[in-house]
């Protein structure tokens, strides 16, 4: 299942990602009108929000693949989770970086301990520790299971972090589904949709690429294990894989 999924994504995602990314950049810089109160800096929004959605999608894939791995014990699901966290972290970092730049111009500070910001930072930290765990536990055959448990607990934890940080005040705006204000120009909506298409297809594309790489690395490890076990040279094609 993972095999065909990976193949389909690698075939389709580039076709979507390349034109939409280009179009979204052109739209953001040359086409969309500037925001009335925030001015130019509001244009960060078009990549900030889809990146956040993209990293949630990736972490969601990671959580579900981790559950699947614990149930089936299949290495493919573990690779899927690992790849999703790697890609999700890239986009989570984009969200933090772009948000920080935007906050500096809009709120006058690089960082505030607002509920959403804190929740997101904790999410980032949880999955950073996931990647650290993978590095430190490399070579341990239990590593995939430790990592899967961490990913699941980390994902379940997010709503709790959200509620706990709500005990503080929030200043992060809610633009989508907000009756007052928010984005009103149709060109803004179109640019946002373009950016969504671009970044979500990028997430899937990168995930499939990383997945391909991890699966290949896993196969190489298996083959090397075989070679050490029988003392033979590395076979050109393993009958087992």
């Amino acid at each position: 299942m993972i095999d065909s999924l990976q193949r389909w994504i690698l075939r389709i995602a580039p076709l979507v990602a390349l034109p939409t990314t280009l179009a979204s950049l052109l739209a953001i810089f040359f086409w969309v009108p500037s925001d009335q109160s925030l001015g130019l800096s509001q244009r960060i929004f078009y990549w900030h929000v889809p990146s956040a959605t993209g990293c949630f999608v990736a972490f969601g894939i990671a959580g579900l693949s981790s559950v699947a791995h614990l149930r089936t014990r299949r290495a493919d699901w573990d690779h899927a989770a690992h790849a999703a966290v790697s890609v999700g972290m890239v986009f989570a970092t984009i969200v933090l970086g772009s948000g920080s730049i935007w906050a500096h111009t809009a709120w006058g500070a690089w960082w505030t301990w607002d509920s959403r910001l804190t929740t997101f930072l904790v999410l980032w930290l949880v999955f950073a520790s996931y990647l650290l765990l993978r590095t430190f536990a490399q070579g341990n055959e239990m590593a995939p299971r430790y990592a899967a448990v961490l990913a699941i607990v980390g994902a379940v934890n997010v709503p709790l972090v959200m509620m706990a940080t709500r005990l503080f005040r929030t200043i992060h705006p809610q633009v989508i589904n907000n009756p007052q204000g928010g984005i009103d120009d149709p060109r803004m909506v179109q640019a946002l949709l373009l950016s969504f298409a671009a970044l979500l297809s990028l997430v899937l594309w990168l995930w499939a690429l990383k997945l391909m790489q991890l699966r290949a690395a896993g196969r190489i490890e298996l083959l090397e294990g075989d070679r050490h076990a029988d003392g033979h040279a590395l076979p050109a094609r393993s009958s087992r894989s």
Partner: peptide, 25 residues
């Protein structure tokens, strides 16, 4: 899980502190 890694003592706080943040708040 932390015991199963190379860095042992260093890993446990890295794993649990982010998870414990809501509790601590």
């Amino acid at each position: 899980a932390a015991l199963g890694t190379r860095a042992r003592e260093m890993v446990l706080p890295l794993l649990v502190l982010p998870l414990q943040i809501p509790l601590l708040i």
